[in-house]
Amino acid sequence: MKLPGLLLFSAPLCIAGYGVIRLAGRADGHYGPGPDWQAAHLFGLLGMVLFIPVVLNLSRELPPSRWRDGTVGLTLIGLGATIVQFTADISFAALAENKADMSRLSNQFSDIPGVRPLFYTVLPQLFFLGLVVLTVLLARRKLLPWWSPPLLLAGILLSAFSLDFLPLTGAAILVALLPMAEPNVLGRVGLRADR
């Protein structure tokens, strides 16, 4: 079974879209709160939500095991934490009158004990770690090419270095997972899955 093409393309493209809108919004020096901030974060939120079925579909390609189930569980926890983060950021921007007000609301939330590691620094990283482990497991079973895990990891590390690289991160995730797409999708984009 191959991953539905719409999901496979939409989730990473939303991450790339978040990065592109963020860069455009920051170009004038007035990023957030405002339409550019909200649009970027809505793209990011949608991407995270769409990754839930992507992760579940990827896991179905693997035989049941503790590694698979543990990886999927941690990945979904990371996605959940990231979804809370995006939702909070969108809410604070909607309530704020200016950037200072938005920062104040955000700091009030993140200063609650446990909030920063739960939703900003530690748990969200489980999504990216879990996605890399899933691609390694799929590559070991020859369901993905050998280059998919390192490409995915490189893309993720770029965004960890700077959020300005988010468009490249989204593109790297898409290319790394593309061989899992339905064969007819690969034919339409001029590629084929060599398994």
Rank of each mutant, 00 (worst) to 15 (best):
L3A: 15
L3N: 03
G5W: 10
L6T: 15
S10F: 15
P12Y: 15
C14E: 01
A16Y: 01
G17P: 00
G17D: 00
Y18T: 10
Y18D: 08
Y18V: 07
Y18Q: 03
G19N: 03
I21H: 04
G25H: 09
R26S: 08
R26C: 07
R26W: 06
D28F: 14
G29F: 00
Y31W: 03
G32L: 14
D36A: 05
W37I: 14
W37C: 05
L42S: 04
L42M: 01
F43D: 04
F43Y: 05
L45N: 06
L45A: 06
L46R: 03
F51H: 01
I52C: 04
I52M: 04
V54R: 11
V54F: 10
V54L: 10
V55P: 06
L56A: 11
L56P: 13
N57R: 11
L58E: 06
E61Y: 07
E61D: 01
L62K: 02
P63G: 11
W67N: 01
W67Y: 03
W67R: 04
D69M: 02
G70A: 02
T71N: 13
I77W: 11
G78Q: 14
I83H: 12
I83Y: 06
V84S: 00
V84H: 07
Q85E: 13
T87N: 09
A88E: 12
A88Y: 07
F92P: 15
A93P: 15
A94W: 06
L95C: 13
N98T: 07
D101V: 06
L105T: 04
S106V: 10
N107P: 06
Q108A: 10
S110K: 14
G114F: 00
G114Y: 00
R116Y: 08
P117H: 00
Y120V: 06
T121I: 02
L123S: 10
L126G: 12
L126F: 15
F127L: 01
F128A: 08
L129V: 05
L129K: 05
V132P: 07
V133Y: 03
V133M: 04
T135W: 11
L138T: 05
A139D: 04
R141G: 03
R141F: 05
K142S: 00
L144Y: 10
W146S: 15
W147V: 07
P149G: 15
P149V: 08
L152H: 12
L153T: 13
A154D: 03
L157Y: 00
S159D: 09
F161P: 08
F165P: 10
P167V: 01
T169W: 09
G170P: 05
A172K: 02
L174R: 09
A176H: 14
L178Q: 14
M180F: 15
A181P: 05
E182K: 14
E182G: 11
G187R: 13
G187Y: 12
V189F: 11
V189A: 11
R192L: 15
R192C: 07
A193V: 15
R195Y: 10
